[in-house]
Amino acid sequence: MRKIVLFCSAGMSTSILVNKMIEAAKAIDYDCTVEAHSVSEVARLGADADIVLLGPQVRFNLAGVQKTLPGKPVEVIDMRMYGTMNGAAVIDHVRKVLGDDK
């Protein structure tokens, strides 16, 4: 099971995306958990994630998060995917990054 953790500024709109991602993952039988938290929790809650996703509104934190979680995939969610709450596209991206799209 893959653990996907999203970080944003407050977690409100990201929680909607989380639900869309969970629906999309279930539709393709992709075994994962998806959580959303405030970016201030990266060090505490990102360490055991398989991949960390940042909301576009906190993309300026990318380098800092990568430094905090060395060796872990850290990606900024595409602004269009985020804006349209396209959970399926985000799951597809995660699967590609993690090599689970084979």
Rank of each mutant, 00 (worst) to 15 (best):
A88H: 11
L45I: 12
G46P: 08
G46V: 03
R80V: 15
V76Y: 04
L62H: 06
G46E: 07
I22P: 09
V5F: 05
K96C: 04
T84P: 01
D78M: 00
A47Y: 11
A36K: 07
G71H: 01
R95C: 01
N61G: 05
D31C: 06
I51Y: 09
K102G: 15
N19C: 09
H93A: 00
M79Y: 14
M12A: 08
S40G: 13
G99C: 10
E23A: 11
A10T: 10
T84W: 07
Y82V: 01
T14N: 00
D92V: 02
P73C: 04
K96Q: 13
T14Y: 02
R2G: 09
T14M: 05
A43G: 09
S15K: 00
H37W: 14
V97Q: 07
L6A: 00
T14K: 03
G55R: 06
M85V: 03
F7E: 00
E41S: 13
M85H: 02
N19A: 13
L17S: 00
R2E: 12
E23D: 15
K3Y: 01
G87R: 04
G71A: 01
L17K: 01
K3R: 15
K67P: 07
V58K: 04
S40T: 14
G87V: 02
D48K: 15
D31N: 14
G99W: 05
L54D: 01
Q66D: 09
E75P: 03
L69M: 10
I4A: 05
A88C: 11
G87K: 04
D100Q: 10
H37D: 11
A25D: 09
F60H: 00
V58M: 04
V90Y: 00
K26D: 15
N19Y: 02
P73S: 07
A89Q: 14
N86V: 00
L6D: 02
E41H: 14
Q66E: 15
L54P: 06
S13M: 00
Q57H: 14
L45K: 15
D48L: 07
G71K: 03
G46W: 06
P73M: 08
V39T: 12
Y82L: 03
T33Y: 05
S15R: 05
I51S: 06
V90H: 08
K20F: 05
N19L: 10
L45H: 11
V39N: 08
V39W: 11
A24N: 09
C32W: 08
V76G: 01
V74C: 07
G64Y: 09
V52C: 04
D92F: 10
L53H: 00
L69P: 03
N61W: 12
F60V: 03
H93T: 07
V39P: 01
A43M: 11
C8I: 07
L98C: 08
L98D: 04
V94P: 00
T84C: 04
A89W: 09
C8W: 03
Q66A: 12
G46Q: 10
G83H: 04
F7N: 02
A36D: 11
V39H: 12
I28S: 12
A10V: 10
D101F: 10
M79I: 15
Q57N: 09
V94W: 05
V65I: 13
N61T: 08
K3G: 09
D92A: 15
G87Y: 05
R2K: 15
S38P: 10
R80H: 13
I91V: 15
E23V: 04
K96E: 12
S13A: 08
G71V: 02
N61Q: 12
I4M: 00
R59S: 13
L54F: 02
K96L: 10
H93M: 13
